[in-house]
Design a protein around this nucleic acid. Structure first.
Lengths: 339, 339
DNA sequence: GATGGCTATGGAAACGATTCCATGACGGAA
DNA sequence: TTCCGTCATGGAATCGTTTCCATAGCCATC
């Protein structure tokens, strides 16, 4: 480990339990006990040890601890696209709970690629105590395989036998469709997201069923990507569909489509009503402000981490599913059909 | 370490170099060499070892490696507020370069609190090879102290003797003030951000000097927080300042103020021109779309990580400063003063 | 045909913490 | 007084990898 010739690495060497042991005249094992199992050593020794530790500015070396215990004190969070504003709140919620439990969060981004997701998950898995898979593009079997190796919680996508946290789209969607129906819309469209996304399928099926229940026709329109560009690109297809309202896969797509509408002189909501999903940052900024089906991503992040920590602690492999309700947020992008 | 009574932990035990050594009939040290120092063992042995490793699905245990080497293969990224959309791109850029170098990123959020930032940085520091401090609220001396312990790069804030990456606000700001001046604005205001923020001071000083150079008067208005709420809350103070244009500390504040203006019937840009900073996601969504001084946060993230990795590799402690140019993005929120 | 240098590999000591097992002291019960 | 249980602590093995040092074989050189 000699630093041969290299410019000397910076910083003083951090103190170890051996340093504390030497100073206080006890055995390293006693130091370890004093610091981690209060009451396991005599009060006076513990006192001396704690003081010495504070003096030296001792901090447990997580790597050294991880070796014998197998616990790294970190969780991995793998999302499909870190750039997507939806994940802001999720990340924040996750971070909050993790911090509360003295756990670090490692992030990674799979760039919407299943293959990259799998390899990243595998690499990540060895360095963490558990994995959070958000909006996974993997197949059920692949996820189950990962879950067999280490605790894993699927977010935004239920997987049989694997614990998961996901929004329940029905409540919000019912509100949305009731509103559209009440306003007189009869021909609507669903602007789809990525095919590999479970959530996309879920939204389409739910929207479809609810629309049919209400005697509305609903068309499915493909989009090139779950981004603003994807929404913009779909403009022509939406126009061709001859509908009075569009439910978009998410707010990003909806905002992209909204921009294209304005650009082409299609008035929203007079000529076309628009509803998004997720209530991301910025959804209330657009003109008109975007109506959307909201789910509390912050909550999802918190619940998911809590669940994962629980699974880690008691080796729980139960595949319990947790569903958080959604709600419709009514803004200016929806109105009665104009003609 | 026995799992006494606990529901058996999941998963098969991962393979180690000992397993590979046993299978191939060599010494573990040879396995280590074969895998990490190509050419250091005979081609045939290396071949056999690699095959066995692949068979067993061997992955290096990063904790075990970290112990003797002191290198964890992770970088810490500490921001003041993960919720701020500015950091999206920064995070993404950082993540990209980190991945390229097989390095993981650990995130943490200091919630705009200097004390929390310091303690988080210290805790983080022991688990990572280097630290990225974004928009730090710490004092120079504290940052220098942290930098003495382990490689550190300050982002969005230069610190004497510490390597840093920050935007150069002048170019973008010059464009902005030239535009305002050309349109006939003579009384403008700067809606400030957090006092502890170096960037806030920088923006104010630069705006002030440039305004004075052009014979414009400029007032400084305090805000309660660098968020949309902060901007909304500042509405009354802005009105009281009797100006025709406002430069806000950042887009968030600007958007908040914009919302308040619309709500109170103040027409933007006719009654008041508005300019933000950062060009965050959503800045182009508002009505009117927000003019802003943009800096490439993605680039900043990439550069910062690259710099940090460099510093780690060659123990470089040089406090080089890197400044990335900004540019003005002209949108609809600026016009000639209306009365 | 010794000698020296090089290459390929084995052996063992670290790294820092945890944890099982052992031991000595002490106190109370018989 | 003896014995046993308990408590506080020491000692040592262990986790998986890296790396320094040692050694055996080999080839080339003098």
């Amino acid at each position: 480990m000699g630093d041969k010739g290299r410019p000397a690495p910076k910083g003083r060497v951090p103190a170890t339990i051996y340093d504390i042991a030497r100073i206080t005249g006890v055995n390293p094992s006693t130091v370890s006990r004093a610091l981690n199992q209060p009451g396991r050593v005599s009060a006076s020794t513990e006192q001396r040890i704690r003081e010495a530790a504070a003096d030296l500015g001792y901090r447990t070396n997580p790597m050294a601890r991880a070796l014998p215990t197998g616990k790294t004190g970190t969780l991995g969070l793998l999302v499909s696209d870190l750039t997507n504003p939806v994940y802001f709140d999720l990340v924040r919620g996750a971070e909050r709970v993790a911090r509360e439990h003295d756990t670090m969060l490692v992030f990674a981004d799979s760039q919407e690629s299943a293959e990259l997701e799998r390899s990243t998950a595998e690499r990540l898995q060895i360095a963490v105590d558990g994995l959070l898979l958000v909006a996974s593009r993997l197949e059920d079997a692949q996820i189950q395989e990962l879950a067999a190796a280490k605790p894993l919680v699927a977010v935004n996508r239920p997987v049989p036998g694997v614990p998961s946290v996901a929004p329940d789209v029905r409540p919000g969607m019912i509100e949305a469709l009731d509103l559209l129906h009440g306003l007189g819309h009869r021909r609507i469209a669903y602007l789809a997201g990525p095919e590999a996304s479970w959530m996309n399928g879920m939204r389409w099926v739910t929207a479809h069923d609810l629309a049919v229940d209400r005697g509305m026709s609903i068309a499915e329109i493909q989009s090139s990507a779950p981004t603003r560009e994807g929404g913009t690109d779909a403009f022509a297809a939406v126009m061709a569909a001859d509908v009075t309202a569009v439910l978009a896969y998410n707010d990003l797509v909806a905002l992209g489509l909204l921009g294209a509408c304005l650009e082409h002189g299609v008035a929203v909501p007079r000529d076309l009503s628009l509803i998004g999903f997720d209530d991301i940052f910025g959804a209330d900024l657009s003109a008109p402000a975007l109506s959307t089906v909201r789910c509390s991503w912050g909550d999802m992040g918190e619940r998911a981490v809590a669940k994962l920590l629980g699974a880690i602690q008691d080796g729980d492999a139960s595949g319990a599913e947790l569903n958080l309700p959604t709600e419709f947020v009514s803004r200016a992008s929806v109105a009665a059909p104009g003609r």
